[in-house]
């Protein structure tokens, strides 16, 4: 049987490598957050990489709002994810994964701020988040200057007020979720939010 012998001497082995088979062969990209957490808690680095990919923008943005500069924000985001990896075994899903990651990021930021004052960005160093081609250059510049002033004012708020304002305004977290993140009551969160806005108004009002 010439056909069979030809197959027997073939040196090639063909195999299909799946990207991930920890959860019944489902690729990590198809898993929901809860499943990813379970896989990561079991030691899957690939599952944790996917968690990082999904949440890196939000975590980075929380950190940026706190420190108001890219370098520190990227360091803090990295630090937050390393801590998340270390703590993922203890995450029991009592909150959403994003809430848990925000909590870690906020704690990392608050710890860092207690050691180091944020570097305030220069107006010239900012890039435009939105495409400014649709509006006049002058209007865009005024808008960007206002944004820089607001970011700088936020970076100068007391820690809890800043955290509350950031999580409520930019990450749509409920008062209860913020209370969970900061370890305080809903009443305290509302009071912090009020004082954050009042202080922001004061700071912006005193700027030239």
């Amino acid at each position: 049987m010439p056909h069979e012998s030809a197959l027997a001497i073939s040196p090639w082995t063909v195999s299909v490598v799946k990207p991930f088979d920890g959860a019944a062969g489902t690729p990590v990209g198809d898993l929901d957050d809860a499943r990813l957490v379970a896989e990561a808690a079991g030691g899957s680095r690939e599952a944790f990489d996917e968690i990082v990919t999904r949440h890196r923008r939000a975590v980075y943005q929380v950190c940026y709002r706190f420190v108001n500069n890219h370098e520190d924000a990227s360091d803090l985001a990295q630090d937050a994810f390393v801590r998340a990896w270390k703590g993922v075994k203890n995450f029991k899903g009592q909150a959403a994964l994003s809430t848990w990651l925000y909590r870690i990021a906020v704690n990392v930021c608050l710890n860092r701020l207690s050691i180091k004052k944020p570097v305030i960005e220069a107006i010239e160093s900012t890039e435009h988040f939105e495409d400014s081609r649709v509006e006049g250059a002058q209007q865009a510049m005024i808008r960007e200057q206002r944004a820089v002033a607001v970011r700088r004012a936020i970076a100068n708020l007391p820690d809890k007020q800043r955290a509350t304002l950031i999580l409520r305004t930019y990450h749509d977290m409920s008062h209860q979720q913020i209370a969970d993140v900061l370890g305080s009551s809903v009443g305290a969160v509302k009071a912090n939010f009020f004082h954050a806005l009042a202080n922001l108004k004061k700071i912006l009002g005193s700027e030239p």
């Binding site: 890196r56 990295q78 939105e130």
Partner: peptide, 30 residues
């Protein structure tokens, strides 16, 4: 009014290459 100002204050978008760089940094740090 202040809340509206705060909402409009977007943050600078990093380079598109930054996100993968951040993932790599996290992997290396771990």
């Amino acid at each position: 009014a202040v809340l509206n100002d705060a909402k409009e204050a977007s943050i600078p978008e990093p380079s598109p290459l930054f996100w993968n760089h951040l993932s790599t940094r996290v992997r290396t740090a771990i």
